[in-house]
């Protein structure tokens, strides 16, 4: 991926330094430093309970870190509310899909646009078909324009994930946080979704940070990987480096029985 490598040299969209958080005496995250560049896909992997979710929640303002700084293109985000951080260009998708089931697909996307346009306290204008053109455009990007008028509640799981992606891209974020984006999907759907996310990230110059347990996805789609264990970063590098790191193998990857595209099970 020479294309991506060229990007990684680009300016960091998000720089995290010395990020720390303790819960009731337990150090959940400790002195975490990393950067994500525009157009780069950075995977954050690690065992359950390593502090990945805490990291994510600190980045988008849901949890306030004890120490450390999170800078978006040089601007400090720590201390700002989730809404403020979102407005500055940090989008997020969730592990379990979170959409508005009482709205159509197009309305789900239009909702973001209304929020971005600060129209949510308009009591008398009509919201029906509002921002529809822009919403359809976003849906087209993720291949969902054809289902724009279906209710979100009846979509297949993979399609919901695409809608979430469109929603996350709605306010033209500079950084996109994706929490286990392919959890619960079939192998081919996983590859398709991450391929789409990677293509959009590269096209739109969005920095993507994602967590994932499917190593096949991580090794094939991440430009760079960082590994978190017990709240601390223990490794950083490309797929090859991570795959052969003894500490990562011991704490996370194991013997490689349960992943690996090139290995057939029971080989």
């Amino acid at each position: 991926m020479s294309f991506a490598e060229a990007r990684t040299a680009g300016s960091p969209a998000l720089s995290v330094s010395g990020l720390s958080k303790a819960f009731g005496g337990v150090q959940a995250v400790k002195d975490v430093d990393f950067q994500v560049a525009e157009g780069e896909l950075l995977a954050l992997i690690g065992p359950n309970g390593a502090g990945k979710s805490t990291c994510f929640n600190m980045l988008n303002g849901q949890i306030r870190p004890d120490r450390g700084s999170v800078k978006l293109s040089g601007e400090e985000l720590v201390g700002r509310s989730p809404a403020q951080i979102w407005r500055r260009g940090v989008g997020r998708t969730f592990q379990i899909t979170a959409t508005f089931p009482s709205m159509t697909v197009a309305e789900n996307v239009a909702m973001v646009l209304m929020s971005q346009a600060r129209e949510l306290f308009s009591f008398t204008r009509s919201a029906v078909n509002r921002h529809r053109a822009k919403a359809l455009q976003l849906l087209d990007m993720v291949g969902m324009a054809g289902q724009a008028d279906r209710p979100c509640g009846v979509l297949a799981y993979g399609d919901l994930k695409r809608v979430e992606l469109a929603v996350a891209l709605g306010n033209e974020p500079r950084v996109l946080l994706m929490d286990e984006p392919t959890a619960g999907m079939a192998p081919r759907e996983r590859v398709e979704l991450m391929g789409l996310a990677a293509r959009l990230a590269h096209e739109l110059d969005v920095a993507v940070l994602f967590t994932e347990h499917d190593m096949d996805i991580v090794f094939s789609h991440a430009d760079r990987i960082i590994v978190l264990s017990r709240g601390e970063l223990i490794a950083e590098g490309d797929a090859e480096q991570i795959r052969s790191d003894p500490l990562v193998l011991k704490t996370y990857l194991g013997e490689g029985q349960v992943y690996g595209q090139d290995k057939k099970p029971k080989d």
Partner: peptide, 14 residues
């Protein structure tokens, strides 16, 4: 049983 678990943990479940 393996959903959302690290590969090393999945090996233990096996």
């Amino acid at each position: 049983p393996s959903e959302g678990l690290a590969p090393v943990v999945v090996e233990q479940i096996i």
